[in-house]
């Protein structure tokens, strides 16, 4: 199972804090994004834009990064700490 965690305004758009996916084998971040867009159409503009970063197991990832069973994926809108 892959667990996707939503943060800040994305949590409000998805109306969820997490989403779990059961996968048969490794997938790419791009493939996971497509699944998320299908399940959460409201997230599509954020996922298609360049401002939302993706993390895999708490490290920044790219669209080609591999996600596999047991991984934790974060959808990270622009940071505003400090």
């Amino acid at each position: 199972m892959i667990i996707v965690r939503f943060f800040a305004m994305l949590k409000g758009i998805a109306k969820a804090e997490t989403k779990e996916y059961v996968v048969n084998g490794p997938i790419t971040v791009a493939e996971l994004k497509a699944m998320l867009k299908k399940d959460f159409p409201g997230l599509a503009p954020a996922l298609d834009g360049r401002s939302v970063l993706i993390s895999v197991n708490q490290e920044f990832a790219s669209k080609d990064s591999v996600v596999k069973d047991g991984d934790e994926v974060g959808l990270l809108p622009p940071f505003s700490g400090g």
């Binding site: 943060f7 800040a8 920044f60 974060g74 990270l76 940071f79 505003s80 700490g81």
Partner: peptide
């Protein structure tokens, strides 16, 4: 502090 703002996953409401 600049790097903190750039790469740390913290969000302000």
């Amino acid at each position: 502090i600049t790097e903190l703002k750039r790469i740390t996953p913290i969000w302000k409401r």
